[in-house]
Structure formats: structure tokens, C-alpha cells
């Protein structure tokens, strides 16, 4: 006891106690959570592998324009060729690559939507009759989905940014259609047209049509969140997630709605109506006039 008391007064005693306490906490913590630790280690290994895949895909498909570190590139005059991708987030990557806009074909006023390149094409046909073909296609599709995920995760790892919305946030059947229509007319229709048929913008840019079924709810959500190309960003304070879901509900339900009045004429308003009026309406009546005036009575009764 005396010895202990003596040690207590030694100069290094305080350090020893702190060290002992740390060791004890460490041992206790290790004792309580050995499993999670092991799983995390495994997960980290998998994540590192995915991240490496993402980085490899980035180097192969994106780095030539966006730079090896995604810092963006400029031409000799200092004019940007491609923007920095640090902080754009997973949602942006999923949108740009998933809609085929990236990798870009050639620089222009605006990148058009096109079929995504094979490593990222998640929309390929899988319903083949032959088993081998079907399995190969399914495998390719799964790989494409994984590639897109890995690339998004890699870019997100560079600087965070908006995440890919969960399916529950984009379900069109859960949104308030009436509210969505109002919000759409106020915020979106001036470029995309009241039924989402798209429209022209300045300098060769354009608002793409939203009326085709290949524009998925997730893509609409991501576009609002990230503001691709000429589109402004509608972040969660401008349009809350509920508002976004309402807009998605309006768009999807409107494009699925049949035209009660007959052929919709592209739903673009009076331009196609005028064309139909002149060509079909007046055209048919001119034909009728020609037919009716060409008819000659056989013989007029004398009187």
C-alpha cells in the first residue's frame, strides 16, 4: 500500500493512469463490438473495390474532358471545355450518364439525350427467347446498373453533393396532381410547354420534352435537384420534396392521360391546330367543291 502510495506521487503516474484508462476503454469497446468491426472491414474492402471501379470508369469515359481529378478542363484561351465535377453529387452523375447526355458526343450548345453508351445502358432489351441470350443481356444490364452506381459513388466521394432520390420520393402515384400542375405551370411550363412537350431556348439551347415515357420520375427529380445544362436548380427550399413529387405526379399522369377530344395534334397548341384546319378542313372542302362542281345535271327540263 505504501508502495502504491509512493508510485502515485511519481511524475509519470498521471500519464500511466490515462494510458491505462484508454487501454481499458479500447478493450471494453473491442469486447462489445467485435462483429461490426469485422463486417465494416469487409464492407470497406468492397466499397474500396467499388470506388476503384468507379474511378476506373471515370478515367476511361470522363477524364479526357473533365480532367484526371475531375477538376474540369479549359482550352488554350482559358475557355472552359468541361466543368469541375467536385461537389456535383451522385444525382447529377446518375442523370447525365443515365440519360446518355454524358459522355458527350461533341461539344455544342447543349448535349442531347441519346442512348447511353453500353457500359452504362440500363435500358437494354432483356426479354429474349433464347436462354443464353437473355442471361447475357440480364448480366450486362446488372453490370450497367452497378457501373452507374459505382461512378456516381466515386464522384460523390470527391466532394459530396445531392444524392440520388429514393424510389419513395419519386413515386408518381403518391404526389398531389393539382398542386403539381400549378407548380409546373408557374415554374416549368415557360420552357417545357404546358404539357411538357419541350420548347426552344436562346442560343440553340432547348428545353427537352418530358412527355416521352423514357423520361423516368427519378430523372425528373434529379434534373430539378441538379439543374442540368440550361435548367435552373430547384433545391429543396425552392421546391420541397413533396412539391417535386407533385410535379412528377402531374407530368406522368398528364402524359398517360388519353386525349378525350380525338387526336391531340402533339399537344403543342394552336400552331398544329391551324395547320390541321387549313390542310384537313379546307383541303377536304376544296375536294368536295371540285367534286360537286364537276357534277353536271343530265338534262335540264325546258320550261
Amino acid at each position: 500500500m505504501k508502495r502504491f502510495t509512493a508510485w502515485r506521487r511519481r511524475p509519470w503516474a498521471g500519464y500511466a493512469v490515462v494510458l491505462a484508462a484508454l487501454a481499458a476503454i479500447g478493450v471494453i469497446y473491442a469486447g462489445f463490438s467485435p462483429q461490426t468491426d469485422r463486417a465494416e472491414a469487409e464492407g470497406t474492402a468492397q466499397a474500396a473495390q467499388d470506388l476503384a471501379n468507379g474511378k476506373q470508369l471515370f478515367n476511361k469515359n470522363c477524364a479526357s474532358c473533365h480532367g484526371l481529378n475531375a477538376e474540369g478542363t479549359k482550352d488554350a484561351k482559358g475557355k472552359p471545355i468541361a466543368p469541375s465535377l467536385i461537389g456535383v453529387g451522385a444525382a447529377s452523375v446518375d442523370f447525365q450518364v443515365g440519360t446518355g447526355r454524358m459522355p458527350a458526343m461533341n461539344p455544342g450548345a447543349q448535349m442531347p439525350r441519346k442512348e447511353p453508351i453500353p457500359p452504362f445502358n440500363t435500358e437494354i432489351k432483356t426479354d429474349y427467347e433464347e436462354k443464353e441470350k437473355r442471361e447475357a443481356a440480364e448480366k450486362q444490364k446488372a453490370q450497367a446498373e452497378k457501373n452507374l452506381e459505382d461512378l456516381s459513388a466515386y464522384i460523390a466521394s470527391l466532394g459530396g453533393g445531392p444524392e440520388i432520390p429514393p424510389a419513395s420520393a419519386t413515386d408518381p402515384s403518391k404526389g398531389n396532381v393539382a398542386l403539381g400542375g400549378k407548380l409546373f405551370r408557374t415554374n416549368c411550363a415557360q420552357c417545357h410547354n404546358f404539357t411538357g412537350q419541350g420548347g426552344a431556348l436562346t442560343g440553340g439551347k432547348y428545353a427537352p420534352p418530358l412527355s416521352h415515357s423514357d423520361v423516368t420520375p427519378t430523372q425528373i427529380y434529379e434534373a430539378m435537384l441538379t439543374g442540368p445544362q440550361a435548367m435552373p436548380v430547384f433545391n429543396d427550399t425552392t421546391l420541397t420534396p413533396q412539391d417535386k413529387q407533385a410535379i412528377i405526379a402531374y407530368l406522368v399522369q398528364t402524359r398517360e392521360e388519353p386525349n378525350p377530344g380525338g387526336n391531340g395534334l402533339g399537344r403543342i397548341g394552336p400552331v398544329s391546330e391551324g395547320l390541321a384546319g387549313w390542310l384537313i378542313g379546307l383541303g377536304l372542302l376544296v375536294l368536295a367543291a371540285m367534286w360537286i362542281t364537276a357534277k353536271k345535271p343530265k338534262k335540264l327540263k325546258k320550261s
Binding site: 400549378k182 405551370r185 404539357t195 386525349n259 380525338g262 394552336p270
Partner: peptide, 25 residues
């Protein structure tokens, strides 16, 4: 042939506008 589908246009609101707003021919 559908003409002037006002249900798609929505009610008038001075704050809203649509691309491709044209009058009749």
C-alpha cells in the same frame, strides 16, 4: 381532332406562362 384542350392549359394565372403560346392562326 382535339382543339384547344383548356384542361391541359390550366386556369389563367398572371404569374404563369407556357412555351409555345400562340394565338389561333
Amino acid at each position: 381532332v382535339q382543339i384547344n384542350p383548356i384542361w391541359l392549359f390550366g386556369p389563367y394565372d398572371p404569374g404563369a406562362i407556357s412555351a409555345g403560346s400562340q394565338p389561333d392562326w
